[in-house]
Design a protein around this nucleic acid. Structure first.
Lengths: 210, 210
DNA sequence: CTCGACCTTGACCATATGGTCAGGAAGCGA
DNA sequence: TCGCTTCCTGACCATATGGTCAAGGTCGAG
């Protein structure tokens, strides 16, 4: 068996350590930015000596790249909820729910993604131009179909998508600001639920779907 | 005259150089993040030797602080449009217009602000807890009043504000992504106008104000 | 013209950081 | 046990970067 992971302790060690490092890296990159993050910090957070990081990930760039790609995958998966729905109400409702859930459970990933895009997408530009562009075009067509079928008001699909992305990710990317304005405490379960409902309600009503 | 700027050439030099440096710093901080920005890069962009930067701004932190505060001021000013309006349609319409305009004219500032908040607001935490908190509370009361007067649907004012911030700033912070999805070309005048109209229309309809 | 304040800058320094490496430990098939 | 691969890590290095400094230039008031 020349390739593929064997179920040895070795394979397990590699898997575990890479996961630890990626998790630590995600957090550090999110909190300090790529430039502000140091391999030493990531190593400390992962509980490994710095030299060990370089054993698994040759360079800082490579590690960062892996982190960003990992996030991108999660993003795309969340988008599945868009397709398995008969109309805008179900699709957008499910999509908002999914993205808000991600904002809550993966705030670091969201920040890394935001940072990457804000800095001109140096490492995932190709993904933007291929995968994301296709995904967006597909969803835009779907939305346009709903418009044509009279299921919602004539809204430019792209701007609607931007609004969905912006609003849902805001709860992760600007979580600190929201927390500060919430008396310094994170949103409670109840508040998260209210946020989701408010966002869905404004948008669905706003596009004339309800 | 012990203080205040005299209208000498010296005063002009200081003013001009500080402005150059601040503009260059805003751009570099936006594109590289605080950690990724270097004084050398800022100096080159400003067309001055690095040592000269340190004459006007003793440390990188100090320079960054000035940049962030400058942005915050612009933000607050834009918010004026909120108050000089009789109801939600005019207020929110004007506010969205103003913020979209800022996103277009000051994309670097917006990114610096986003970056600062994403990293936990290390230098403007006090502003968040004082000025921004007060501003937000005031606007929230105003919105609540409109709700009570039946001028709009019963929406949680805070989530509405977050949505406004998120959506309008998205066009600056994620401008690169939008540009990529727009065929690699910046939004045209026409497209910006469409964006504004779409955002206003969805939100105003979404909160039941029209 | 002179003097002091303000401005300019090349050269320099201490430090932090990404990355390397050699030597050794641990796991595993035979 | 042997031998091979994978894994671990302290010590080390080259470089980049924030910041300093001293010497010199420019300006304007008196």
């Amino acid at each position: 068996m020349p390739e593929g992971e064997r179920i040895t302790k070795r394979g397990a060690i590699r898997q575990e350590n890479e996961a630890r490092i990626l998790a630590a890296a995600e957090k550090v990159f999110a909190e300090a930015g790529f430039g502000g993050a140091t391999m030493q910090l990531i190593a400390d957070m992962a509980g490994l000596p710095k030299a060990n990081l370089h054993y698994y990930f040759p360079t800082k760039e490579e590690l960062y790249r892996k982190v960003v790609r990992q996030i991108f995958e999660i993003w795309l998966h969340a988008a599945d909820s868009f397709d398995e729905a008969p109309g805008p109400v179900e699709a957008i409702g499910a999509y908002v729910d999914a993205k808000m859930e991600i904002s809550r459970s993966h705030p670091f990933g969201s920040k890394v993604w935001a940072s990457e895009v804000m800095h001109g997408a140096p490492v995932i530009q190709d993904y933007l131009e291929t995968t994301l562009r296709e995904w967006t075009a597909g969803r835009a067509r779907l939305i346009q179909k709903w418009v044509d079928e009279g299921k919602m008001a004539p809204i430019d699909p792209h701007h609607l998508l931007y609004m969905l992305w912006a609003t849902t990710q805001h709860y992760a990317d600007f979580g600190h600001q929201i927390e500060t304005l919430n008396g310094g405490r994170p949103l409670s379960d109840r508040q998260w639920k209210a946020a989701k409902e408010t966002v869905k309600s404004i948008i669905l009503r706003g596009i004339g779907a309800i």
